[in-house]
């Protein structure tokens, strides 16, 4: 399906690869973003890939809107023919589900929620036809996730579940956004999971919290010394449920500069993945665990 092109004022070209989310649309947008970057088009100032779309910021004093449009359209053709293969990394993120901090916050904003009588996890489990919260957590942490976009605020990853569409978790956002969300909350809205990189407003359902900082402007965190943002589009994430003791121990490791998330480099092939999703995910997990 050809992409839809539209201008965002006189400085942005907006490219919608698909109006619905899919790994195909994500791969195309990422591939186009890479293609545009590699073309070094004069006048292009920023390239932002998103879940199923991308945005190119340009300086119209240097390149005319019609010309940037033609350049990017030419790249679309090449991107469609490109092999859907990505060399990336898989990383394990510990998550303390049902933690006291997000629980305190979700109770504080209960009147803004679809189901004021329960918790976000109970609500999400029920509307996704899980028998109980534990089964829901097992599903959320059971398959890997693609980081399909980094943004909203500094370093926040949007993550797309790597399962068949009928198994994908879907939840609405809060009826009215909260004015507060704990830092490092693992959230969910639409078909995307996210990790709130900083404390602040938010509308995603809250499932838990990770002890692992993902944005550090001071760059003191051991694994963020080279760059303050952890995630990149195309990263693959596997959540690992942890309990309170493990959470506290991880926080202490982070504070002492000793925490380092398990990371392995992997090659992802969308065609192989689509043929046998569970088998492919098991292989990815095996690589993460060093098999």
């Amino acid at each position: 399906m050809p992409a839809r092109y539209t201008f965002g004022g006189d400085e942005h070209l907006f490219v919608e690869c698909s109006d619905e989310m899919s790994l195909d649309a994500f791969f195309k947008s990422l591939s186009m973003a890479t293609g545009i970057k590699d073309s070094n088009i004069k006048g292009v100032t920023e390239i932002c890939p998103a879940n199923a779309s991308l945005q190119v910021k340009f300086n119209p004093d240097i390149i005319k809107p019609d010309d940037i449009l033609k350049e990017v359209q030419a790249i679309e053709g090449a991107a469609e023919k490109a092999e859907p293969v990505l060399t990336t990394r898989i990383v394990e993120i510990p998550v303390y589900y049902n933690d006291p901090w997000t629980h305190e916050t979700l109770m504080r904003f209960r009147e803004r929620h679809q189901d004021p009588s329960g918790t976000d996890l109970e609500y999400a489990a029920r509307i996704n036809d899980f028998g109980n919260v534990d089964d829901f957590i097992a599903a959320h942490s059971g398959s890997p996730w693609f980081v399909s976009m980094v943004g909203f605020v500094a370093g926040l990853p949007f993550m797309y579940q790597m399962v068949e569409r009928q198994r994908q978790i879907e939840v609405p956002k809060y009826l009215r956004p909260r004015t507060d969300t704990p830092k490092l909350t693992v959230g969910y809205g639409g078909c995307f999971s996210c990790i709130y990189s900083v404390r602040g407003a938010g509308g995603y359902q809250m499932f838990g919290i990770t002890p692992m900082p993902i944005f550090d402007p001071t760059q003191e965190t051991s694994y963020l010394r080279d760059f303050m943002v952890f995630f990149r589009p195309g990263d693959i994430v596997k959540f690992k449920p942890i309990n309170r003791d493990e959470y506290d121990a991880a926080v202490e490791e982070v504070d002492k500069g000793r925490f380092s998330p398990p990371i392995r480099e992997v090659k992802f092939d969308l065609r192989e993945f689509s043929k046998d999703i569970d088998g492919y995910n098991a292989k990815l997990e095996g690589m993460l665990n060093g098999h």
Binding site: E11, N51, S53, Q55, G190, C191
Partner: peptide
Amino acid sequence: QPFGAGSDPSNIVDSCYPYGS
């Protein structure tokens, strides 16, 4: 509503926002 966009008619699959949009 397209898959992944959310149920409100003003929702889209999360995309980039241009400055000034």
